[in-house]
């Protein structure tokens, strides 16, 4: 018969951590186990390192808000299985030779 005191540290450990999913726009998903009280900066660094990119190459979005890195999962009310979106930086304009209508998509079925 197991000692209830042995289960207690395990429960506390599970409560202290949260499993988060970082999802990129191309569908690539990486699971992270992060302490609820630990800032998310480490998670962000590790993800960028795995992708071979600098930290400022991605914007990490959770529930529509950008994660700065100093916030903790507790502060952001994160739960197990929550998804953090890793969005690549975007810029927009058309070069002189690109000024055409080829970028447009038409939903012919919708019409």
């Amino acid at each position: 018969m197991s000692n209830p005191q042995d289960d207690k540290p395990i429960d506390q450990e599970q409560e202290a951590h949260v499993i988060l999913k970082v999802k990129s726009q191309d569908g690539d998903e990486v699971l992270f186990k992060n302490k609820k009280s630990a800032p998310l900066k480490k998670l962000m660094y590790v993800y960028c390192d795995r992708r071979g990119l600098k930290l400022d190459a991605f914007a990490f979005i959770f529930n529509g808000a950008r994660i700065g890195g100093l916030e903790t999962p507790d502060e952001l009310d994160m739960e197990d299985g929550d998804v953090i979106d890793a969005c690549r930086a975007m810029s927009g304009g058309l070069r002189a030779n690109q000024r055409q209508w080829s970028y447009m998509l038409f939903d012919h079925n919708g019409l």
Binding site: M104, F106, D107
Partner: peptide, 8 residues
Amino acid sequence: SLNGVDPM
């Protein structure tokens, strides 16, 4: 600003 159209 380029007068594009996208119903989707």
